[in-house]
Design a protein around this nucleic acid. Structure first.
Length: 575
RNA sequence: GCACCGAUGGUCUAGUGGUAUGACUUUGGCCUUCCAAGCCAAUAGCCCGGGUUCAAUUCCCGGUCGGUGCACCA
């Protein structure tokens, strides 16, 4: 891996100076793991989120919801975060080193180290030597370090709350409402973009490991037996670099493969997973990620969560951090819904009607409650239930009640031959979950867009953002701030504003300096008003990447700029 | 969380037991007819707390933030 140790510093220096990303609350000394997005960063983030919305909300039709960032304890008991998101830690009383208690125990041959309680682990470790200093852990206690931020809800602090460690749970907990919203049909999807929180032990790496970060997650609920994506043809022929389990095991680099081949060869579990791999690839390139710096790495069987059938991470290559996981795409089966169903007692199932009603003949044992009630009293209901499950003989039905075998005589029940109609079945959907780390994507876009080139012995710093991502879309510059050029420029600016285009007006200093300023913040186009503009009602449009200019009619400018930003036409076509 | 290293205008930096160098940027003015030109001026800084000292940005201790290694990363 070629490491350029200064590229991160260069990017972050620019990002700080020009208002993309700042350390948070600097006047009080900042806090590791938290950042502020400055004016340009916040705008750029919004644009990237909007591109994401284009793919998931507009293209796929999955509506967005917004849930609280604080959730009450039950949610995270169900999701497994209260238990599973905590590590059992122990600190050596002699050298002060922190260890994962279960790892130390396992290495010393203690069985079930991962599942035994903290108390048991404490006892087990008392005479075990610290792997660092070899003194024993005598007197040290195993404690839980949970990566969730904890809080109390209300003044009585009776109700425990947690800051959500992922946005997904809000979608799962709203499942029954969402199901109604989508009129009781599968498949359907719901997305959420928002902040999540993890109390990282050591959040270094700037924007890569944050304690508060933005996720964009989609939860797509599908029939467990129908994992073919209805719009699969959209991406069937798209080639994506796949770093599959076998590539990893055979130490081969990622190989390009179409999604159709990925699914038919069995590399990718199903069309849904493949569709979102391809869609993620599409999204990344749209945001300005370099095509040669993305790959999709399949989770190895031992790192995959036990409930997931297939899981792929989109990884982006960073000069500074190497391959960084930015998106996870998993088939989570019915794990989450099942967990919430168990915790809440709600069904979390979909009733799917059969095309044709099925008729089933069966024999039913129906209790005669009039007779049963007086005899069995408060046990009558239990007896009736047990009878329904029993297979009566001529002399009566033998049932078991509280471990006691009872023979219920025939006069207490009736055996009926009934035909029932079955109109459908309840099924618990499976969930496909693409989960995006927006902040990491923003960093990667900055890194991949950043460029330096020498122009007449000066270093030109440019952010080569796609026009859709650039926080400022057009700079309007009068060549001179006089002779009426400034008036024409202001007029052009307001016409562009009417089109909803974000412009910056700048009349200070030499024109070259102004171009450089815009280059540094990635503004794709600059409109310059010169003396010819007064004569023939034209201006020049300067392209950031090529620094080439064209003359264009002022009246038709807003429409052209709009097309250029949306990617409907390319600057080169007008040269 | 541990160990080591670092922290000087917005940015990059020089330097010091007696309040700080230079460049770039920014702002105003002059000049300027398309890629950081020039001139004049202005704004702006020693990470925070404690200690030693007549005096601390400088030395010491603690903290914060950043970098590196360890640990951690559902």
């Amino acid at each position: 891996m070629i490491v350029m140790p200064d590229i991160y510093d260069k990017i972050m220096e620019l990002a700080r100076r020009r208002g993309f990303v700042w350390p948070t609350s600097e006047c009080y000394g900042s806090v590791a793991g938290f950042i502020d997005y400055g004016p340009l960063g916040a705008m750029m983030k919004r644009k990237i989120e909007d591109i994401w919305r284009y793919f998931y909300v507009i293209q796929d039709g999955y509506y967005e919801i917004e849930c609280p960032t604080i959730g009450e304890e039950s949610i995270y008991i169900a999701s497994g975060h209260v238990k599973g998101f905590a590590d059992k830690m122990i600190q050596c009383p002699h050298c002060g080193e922190f260890h994962r208690a279960d790892h130390v125990a396992e290495a010393e041959g203690i069985e079930n180290a991962e599942i035994i309680s903290a108390e048991e682990l404490t006892t087990a470790l008392q005479n075990i030597p610290c792997p660092i200093c070899s003194e024993t852990f005598d007197g040290a206690e195993v404690y839980f370090f949970n990566l969730m931020f904890q809080t109390n809800i209300g003044p009585g602090s009776q109700r425990m709350g947690y800051l959500r460690p992922e946005t997904a749970q809000g979608i799962f907990t709203d499942f029954n409402r969402l199901l109604r919203f989508y009129r009781d049909k599968l498949p359907f999807g719901t997305v959420q973009i928002g902040k999540s929180y993890r109390n990282e032990i050591s959040p270094r790496q700037g924007m890569i490991r944050l304690r508060e970060f933005t996720q964009a997650e989609a939860e797509i609920f599908i029939h467990p037996e129908h994992k073919d994506h209805p719009a699969f043809t959209r991406y069937a022929d798209r080639k994506v670099p796949l770093y599959s389990i076998s590539n990893q095991e055979n130490r081969k680099d990622a190989t390009e493969m179409t999604m159709a081949d990925g699914v038919s060869s069995g590399t990718i579990a199903n069309e849904y997973v493949a569709y979102y791999i391809a869609q993620t690839h599409d999204f990344m390139l749209t945001c300005g990620i370099s095509p040669d710096k993305v790959r999709f790495r399949q989770h190895l069987p031992d790192e995959r969560a036990h409930y997931a059938t297939d899981c792929w991470d989109a990884e982006i290559f960073s000069e500074r951090f190497g391959w960084v996981e930015t998106v996870g795409i998993a088939d989570r089966t019915d794990y989450d819904l099942r967990a919430h169903a168990k915790q809440s007692g709600e069904p979390f199932t979909v009733f799917l009607q059969y095309e044709e009603t099925k008729r089933v003949r069966e024999t039913k044992v129906v209790a005669k409650m009039g007779a049963l009630g007086p005899k069995y009293r408060n046990r009558a209901k239990a007896v009736a239930d047990a009878l329904a499950e029993s297979s009566p003989a001529d002399n009566g039905a033998e049932i078991e009640l509280d471990g006691e075998k009872i023979l219920v005589p025939p006069e207490f029940y009736e055996v009926k031959d009934v035909e029932t109609e079955i109109n459908g079945e309840y099924i618990m959907p499976h969930v496909i979950e693409p989960s995006y780390g927006i902040d990491r994507i923003i960093y990667a876009v900055l890194e991949h867009s950043f460029d330096e080139e020498m122009v007449e012995d000066e270093t030109r710093k440019v952010l080569r953002f796609p026009p859709k991502v650039a926080p400022v879309q057009v700079a309007v510059l009068p060549l001179m701030a006089r002779d009426g050029l400034d008036d024409i420029a202001r007029d052009i600016r307001s016409k562009l504003q009417d089109e909803g285009i974000l412009t910056e007006y700048d009349d200070s200093g030499a024109i070259g300096r102004r171009y450089r300023r815009q280059d540094e913040i990635g503004t794709p186009f600059a409109v310059t008003v010169d003396y010819d503009s007064k004569e023939d009602n034209t201006i020049t449009i300067r392209d950031r990447d090529s620094m080439k200019q064209i003359r264009y009619d002022i009246d038709r400018l807003p429409a052209l700029i709009s097309d250029l930003i949306k990617g409907r036409s390319l600057f080169e076509e007008y040269l």
